[in-house]
Amino acid sequence: MKLVEILSIFAENRPGKLEKITGLLAEEGINILGFSIASVKDFGVIKFLVDDVERAYQRFKERGFTVAKLPAFGIELVDKPGGLYEVVKKISKKGINIESALVYVAETRKRAFFVFEVEDPQNTWDNLKDEGFNFLDSSQLKA
């Protein structure tokens, strides 16, 4: 199974919170490749695709953050109108629900990936692996 791992951090909605989190990543020289923020009124979850998820996870844990790793699939998008549509169409045809997603632009105007989480990774993989997608591999994330 070709999977990547997403770093997910629980954050209260407070001024300076995102600054603190991104500051820690900068300090550690960890590169952010993509991110998303989901929030309800007073708290949220900030998710990152980074080049070294294991080290990032350990650092956040040491600093007392509430942090977790989540498996996700990355599928390459074609840079043309309807690129995302083509991918999502195939995913939904298989009855797979996308729980959360972000975009990883590997090379501007050349290569981008749709990175998404699902409830059942194994089932998703079985359904999508022969659809002709180019899946993102965690080894591709390292600089």
Binding site: A38, S39, V40, V45, T66, V67, A68, E99, S100
Partner: peptide, 18 residues
């Protein structure tokens, strides 16, 4: 306060807890 071990990365789980 949310138990660190309880957090699995998904906001849905937190909303359910709340």
């Amino acid at each position: 306060e949310v138990d660190r071990e309880f957090f699995d990365g998904r906001i849905e789980r937190l909303i359910k807890l709340r």
